[in-house]
Design a protein around this nucleic acid. Structure first.
Ligand SMILES: [Zn+2]
Ligand SMILES: [Zn+2]
Ligand SMILES: [Zn+2]
Ligand SMILES: [Zn+2]
Lengths: 132, 132
DNA sequence: TCGCACACGTTATAGCATAACGCAATTGAT
DNA sequence: ATCAATTGCGTTATGCTATAACGTGTGCGA
């Protein structure tokens, strides 16, 4: 997916996520953008929908939050799965890709004739710094 | 985790999930149990918390729903990750385990000194029957 | 000019989850 | 026997997450 020009709201939301050090919930984003004129959740959700569609933002299902893509320039997303390690102490997220995991999962799905469309791989725990 | 005797509410919730053909949301479970005296969401959530703790029920993060474990007798859960293929047409869920995927993910996490505690692997798409 | 697509704003509502209180039964130590 | 701690339960209220439904304005090609 080639990313078209972002609209004003999309840019605001994307910038907030890019500057954040941890994933943010839609409502947290809303609060951060009230000074820029945001008033309602839909303004955030509509922007997020587009950013997700363009692949420049990921949704973390297990914590109802959103992060900017950590590898916006690689085209891994088009042919591979994305995985996340989420620290429950500091909130830091590491986004990673592993083709071996991809292929293994895809093979299994293929063996079941299951047509995959979206995937979620999220590991929660404690990062090196917080586990000490 | 050895599963202790279930309480009345836990049994009711577990039975509903066991009989269901698809994952159920907590509020759907609540509705199904109103005739048995359930009145409030907390009655469901408290039972679910215990059932999740005992490992006899899984939570599907990507669809805010719950399913009975499909392999209650295997002890895979103690040493392996659990994955789900979720059909977005018929709602059917296939629970599966793949040690190769486990090891690969665990190795990566180890290389990052990340201490994993909970994992979520969910693939959404269309099952063989619905993809036709 | 008309029709359409798209972004946007606003209000209201739906859906998911937990806080906080109090009561009752159980257990296990003193 | 008594007390304290634990656990489950019921209820009310609240908070967080997400979408429905309506209307506006703008740009653009037929
Ligand atoms: Zn990414
Ligand atoms: Zn951390
Ligand atoms: Zn299971
Ligand atoms: Zn299906």
């Amino acid at each position: 997916m080639t990313t078209p020009m972002l609209t004003k709201n999309q840019t605001l939301v994307f910038d907030v996520l890019t500057k954040a050090e941890s994933p943010l919930s839609a409502y947290t984003i809303l609060d951060k953008l009230r000074d820029q004129g945001f008033r309602a959740p839909l303004q955030v959700y509509r922007a997020l929908d587009k950013l997700l569609e363009y692949g420049v933002v990921h949704r973390l299902e297990s914590i109802n939050s959103f992060v900017a893509c950590a590898h916006p320039d690689e085209n891994c997303h088009s042919h591979g799965l994305v995985a996340f390690a989420i620290c429950e102490s500091c909130g830091q997220v590491i986004e990673f890709h592993d083709h071996e995991v991809d292929h293994r999962l895809m093979d299994w799905l293929k063996s079941q004739k299951f047509k995959a469309e979206k995937s979620t791989i999220e590991i929660r725990g404690h990062c090196a710094k917080c586990a000490a």
